[in-house]
C-alpha cells in the first residue's frame, strides 16, 4: 500500500531541490512530513497536496518560507557537558594567549551555541577581546538568534545543562540572564560580542583567521569525500595555527585529521587543535 503522505513529502523534497539551493534529501522523510503538516496548519492550507500545487507555481516567497521552515534547527544551550568542560578548562586557556579571539559557530540555528560560548568567554574573563560569529542558511533562525530572546520553556533546560558542566562550579549564569514573563535574554555583556550572518557551508567561502570553530552535527549529513572537502577547504582554511575546531559527539575524523594538521585534544572528545 502506498503511503500517500510520505510520497507527497518526497515530491516536495524533489521540487525544492530543483527550484532552490536547499536539498533535504538527507533528512528523514517522516520528520519532513511532520514539519509540512505543521507548516500547512500555520498557513491554513488544507493538505500537503494543495501545498505541492502551490509550490509548482514557484512563488519565490513561498519557496523561501517553506525551506526556512523545513531546515533542522535542533540545538540546545550548553549541549554536551563534556565538550563545554573541555572548552572551558583547556581550549579557552590556550586561546587566551592570542591578542584577540575570533569564534565561529557554523550552522548556528537559533544561536544557542553562540550565546553559550559567549558565556564561557565571559566566565574566563576573555570577553573583551572576543568576537563570536554565528552563521546559518536559515534566515528566520538567524533573525531570531540576533534578537537574543528565547522562550522561558527552555530556561530549565539551559540551567540543567549549565549545572552539568563541572568546570563551571562556582560560576553562576543567573546574573547574565534577563528573564521576562514569557521570554529571557542575556545581558549586554554577553550579547554585544555575538554577531550573526548568512553563510552556506557548501557554497560559500572560508572566513579566515578564526581561533575557535564549532561545526557540530553538520558533517553527519555528508559523505566521507564531502566531509573532507568541507574540513579542508572551509574549516582548516579558516583556522589560525593553534586554533581549535569542535565537531559533534558522533563526528569522528579518524586518520584524516592528522593528514591536515588537526590533533585531538583528548581521546573520546571531538575537539581538535590545528597544528600545521
Amino acid at each position: 500500500m502506498l503511503n500517500k503522505e510520505l510520497l507527497v513529502a518526497d515530491l516536495i523534497v524533489h521540487l525544492l531541490k530543483k527550484t532552490t539551493e536547499f536539498n533535504f534529501e538527507r533528512y528523514a522523510l517522516p520528520a519532513i512530513q511532520r514539519r509540512l503538516k505543521s507548516y500547512i496548519a500555520s498557513k491554513g492550507i488544507a493538505s500537503t497536496e494543495i501545498l505541492l500545487l502551490e509550490l509548482l507555481k514557484q512563488d519565490k516567497n513561498t519557496l523561501k518560507e517553506l525551506t526556512q521552515f523545513l531546515t533542522v534547527t535542533h540545538t540546545k544551550f550548553f549541549r554536551d557537558e563534556d565538550y563545554f568542560n573541555l572548552i572551558f578548562t583547556h581550549v579557552l586557556p590556550e586561546l587566551s594567549m592570542f591578542s584577540q579571539i575570533k569564534c565561529w559557530s557554523i550552522a548556528c540555528s537559533y544561536g544557542q551555541e553562540v550565546y553559550s560560548i559567549a558565556y564561557l568567554l565571559k566566565a574566563k574573563g576573555l570577553s573583551e577581546k572576543s568576537t563570536i560569529l554565528g552563521t546559518d542558511i536559515n534566515q528566520v533562525a538567524l533573525e531570531s538568534a540576533k534578537s537574543g530572546f528565547y522562550s522561558n520553556e527552555v530556561l530549565n533546560e539551559l540551567q540543567r545543562n549549565f549545572k552539568a558542566i563541572n568546570a563551571l562550579n562556582g560560576h553562576s549564569i543567573v546574573d547574565d540572564l534577563i528573564v521576562n514573563s514569557r521570554t529571557f535574554t542575556f545581558s549586554e555583556e554577553i550579547t554585544k560580542h555575538c554577531h550573526f550572518a548568512t553563510h552556506n557551508l557548501i557554497t560559500n567561502a572560508s572566513l579566515g583567521h578564526m581561533h575557535l570553530i564549532l561545526c557540530r552535527n553538520v558533517l553527519i549529513y555528508l559523505t566521507e569525500d564531502e566531509q573532507k572537502r568541507v574540513i579542508k577547504d572551509l574549516i582548516v582554511a579558516s583556522l589560525e595555527p593553534g586554533g581549535f575546531v569542535v565537531f559533534g559527539e558522533a563526528e569522528n575524523l579518524l586518520d584524516f585529521a592528522q593528514e591536515i594538521g588537526l590533533e585531538k585534544v583528548i581521546p573520546g572528545i571531538n575537539i581538535y587543535q590545528y597544528k600545521p
Binding site: N3, L29, P30, V72, H74
Partner: peptide
C-alpha cells in the same frame, strides 16, 4: 546509512519509526 540530528520522534532518539520509515 547516516545520522539525523533532530527532535525526538515517537518520543525517542534514535527513533525506530524513523529508521523503518526511511526504508519505505
Amino acid at each position: 546509512v547516516q545520522l539525523f540530528d533532530d527532535e525526538h520522534f515517537s518520543f525517542s532518539k534514535p527513533s525506530i519509526d524513523l529508521l523503518f520509515y526511511s526504508c519505505f
